[in-house]
Structure formats: structure tokens, C-alpha cells
Design a protein around this nucleic acid. Sequence first.
DNA 1: GTCTATACGGCGATAGAC
DNA 2: GTCTATCGCCGTATAGAC
Lengths: 226, 226
Amino acid sequence: MFGTLLPVWIIRMVKSQKNVPDDRSTEAQILDAARRVFVRRGVAAARTQEIADEAGVNKALLHYYYRSKENLADAVFLEAARHLFPPMVATFVSGLPLREKLLRAIQLQTDAATANPFLPGFVMCELRTDAARLTRLLHAVLPVETAQQQLVAALQADLDAEAAAGRLRPTQAETFLVAFLSLAVFPFAGSHMLNTLLGLDAAALDRLAAWRRAELADTLLRAFAP
Amino acid sequence: MFGTLLPVWIIRMVKSQKNVPDDRSTEAQILDAARRVFVRRGVAAARTQEIADEAGVNKALLHYYYRSKENLADAVFLEAARHLFPPMVATFVSGLPLREKLLRAIQLQTDAATANPFLPGFVMCELRTDAARLTRLLHAVLPVETAQQQLVAALQADLDAEAAAGRLRPTQAETFLVAFLSLAVFPFAGSHMLNTLLGLDAAALDRLAAWRRAELADTLLRAFAP
DNA sequence: GTCTATACGGCGATAGAC
DNA sequence: GTCTATCGCCGTATAGAC
């Protein structure tokens, strides 16, 4: 259907508007290799040669499929983000009780960070100095403004209801949300820091992750109790 | 006292063993410029030419004083870390009541992160994939193992005492410490993420910082209350 | 101490052959 | 689609004038 001499990024632009399934051979191998190397080295320190070696192809093929290391990093991010952000937003705007929302959100975040350690580090580090790029990537995954408004509005309604019932203090949704994200994301994003700074090894970090799955929702609710 | 033809990094090695005050002219200007450029671009994306321009000196002088970009980044880190980590450890091993310790620690962390946005990002991002370097740098600032043990032991004693008095649930020091660091550090380290993801502007982040200074200690204690 | 000038090597990007 | 060869940028390093 597509001429074999067309650069792949042009084919991809057409396919992305037509739901044509991608060819999952060399292109996917490069993406998998890139994810592994990015996780191992960080994007900045990753060498395209190492990615090519790990994928078993030539360095020039990376350019053929993705045109630049930056695009390759974006593709890795998007693949992971599509599996995390939409379900996360859907959870918070669902009709579930607040405690159930928190439990599901923690489950989503924990599973995503375990399956894909790339995501938190990439967002916090590589995109730190390029807000425009982060904005562009997020808009490829979510209707950001709409999702923000709906999520914050739904959470504020939950918090107001809990406050009216005397189960929580009056609380701003932003405050609660930042506390939630801090407790859920930081231990993954900063695992190296915790390892060196506090001497927490992989086993200790696993225990903490288990604690979060079991206790974080109730701990957070207790933190904002009257 | 030192020959003016000796490379500065050798002079520095001698001075660091003798408490000789550094010359605070060109060398300090380079350090200040490097800090600004590193904060603006991230270390990996920072160009040594931009640092030299910003310091008003030639690129060769960077090599004369610091030998490499990595050494320059280390120097920026050490300057900031010396002002944060030792007082932080001292606070936790002091004889103050737990609530006072938390209030002081939050004050220290907030002041440090405000005065020096370089630190959390540098540790979480640039040192993420180089544990050996982080370890080496920390040992230049603190007796890491000793400090870790004393801090965790002191905190565990506090938590046990509070639990015995019925004011807290039985709590592991590691769990409490990670929760504290998450809530105190993440909003700074991930400010760009919060900005784009949740639409929090600088004013909103300032309000959250004010909230943490005023409320975080009690919120954290409430989170681990019976 | 500070500068100009220059060289080397690594790496990302790219052209062109097949 | 895949490869070889090459270009250009940048960090590092050094020589040498003042």
C-alpha cells in the first residue's frame, strides 16, 4: 500500500491518521532496544550506537525510522504514557468512592512504574528544561486542558463531600493531588537517590512499594482527616 | 604561597587539606555562571561555551580551573550540598521534639530548594545513572554511613516513643522518612511536571510551598496517627 | 593568570550505493 | 530497507603569546 522508498516517518504520519497497523519488525526492535538503553543510561548519556547494536541493526536505520534520538525518546515516552495517563484520568473522573479512586490510581501508577521505569525519570529529567516538548507530548496522549479541569473538579467535589460529612478537613484539590503524586511517584523517580542517600537497597524499595499499595490510600486520607 | 604557574586543580587539592581560603574572583565567577547555565539547560545540554560567555571569560579558563564539565557540575553540587545535608542530619539527630525536627527540616529543605533549584534536579537526573559518582560526592559532604545510621536510629527512637505514648501508630523510620522526603522534595524536583501536567503556575507552586512550611509537619504526623 | 589558536576524538545526522 | 562512508558539532586538551 505504501511505497517502500518513502521515509518511514512520512508513512507513519499517514498511518497515524488512518488506523493502519504498523509493521512490527525492525522498527519495533529499535524501539525496544532504545527503551532498554534509555533506562540504563538516561537519554542524554545513551549512545545511538549502543541502541543500534542492541537492536542488531545499523546506526543509520535509527535515522531512517525515527530521524533523531529525540524522536526516538518521544516514541518511547508516548508508548508508555498512553498506557498510564488516560486510565489515570478516567479513574479520577469515575463515579467511584474517593478511597476506591485512590486505590486504583496507586495500582495504576505502581504497575506502570514497575513495568516501565523509563517514564518518571524521563518526564522529571529529560523534559525538565523543555516545557514545550512536554506539552506537545502530553497533548498527543490526552486532551490536557479538558482532562485537567475534569480531574480537578471531580476530586474537589469528592473532597468537599468528605468534608461536609466530617471525614476530612476542608482541602484544596491541588494540595491533595500534589501530596498524592509526591507519595506515589517520588519513591520511583528518586529510587537512586533513596538508595545512596538512605542506603535503601532494592529489597527495601520493594517493601516500601508494597506498603504504598496496601496503606498509602488510607494514610493519605488520614493525613487530611479533621 | 602557591606557585602561580601550578594548575589550579592541584592547588585546590592542597588547599582542601589545609583550610586555605580559595581565591574568589574568576574561579567563583565561573562557578556562578555554571550554576545558572546548568539550572537553565540541564548539565547534559549545557554548552561550555555558554558558561564561558556567561562568566565573561574564555573557554580555556574553564579547563584551567575545573578541567572538565563534569568536575564543574560536581563543584556546583558540592557547594549546595554542603549547605543542606549536614544541617539536615544535625536536625534529625538533635534532642528536639519530633515535631520541631520536622518543622526545621522542612524549613531547611524549602530554603535550600528556593535558593538553589539546581540541587534536586541534579541529584535525581544527572546522577541517576551513575551511583558511584553520587556516592563519591556524598562522601565529600558527609560521613554517609555514620550519618545514615544515626539519623535513622534517632528517628526510629522518636517514632517508638510517640507510638508508646499513643500519639502515632507503630511506624518504620524508613517509611516515615521516605514519606517526608517525597512530600518535601518532589514538588520542587517535579515542578515542571506539575506545571504542565496539572497546570500549576509559579503562583500556585508558591502557595503549595507556603502550605508545606505551615502544614506539612502536622499533616505528616496526622498521616501516621493511630 | 588570561588569552588566541588549534588539534583530536566521540557522536548525531545524513548522503548515496545497493 | 539496509548498509558504508562522511560531514559537522562539541567537549577536551594543549601549545604558546602576553
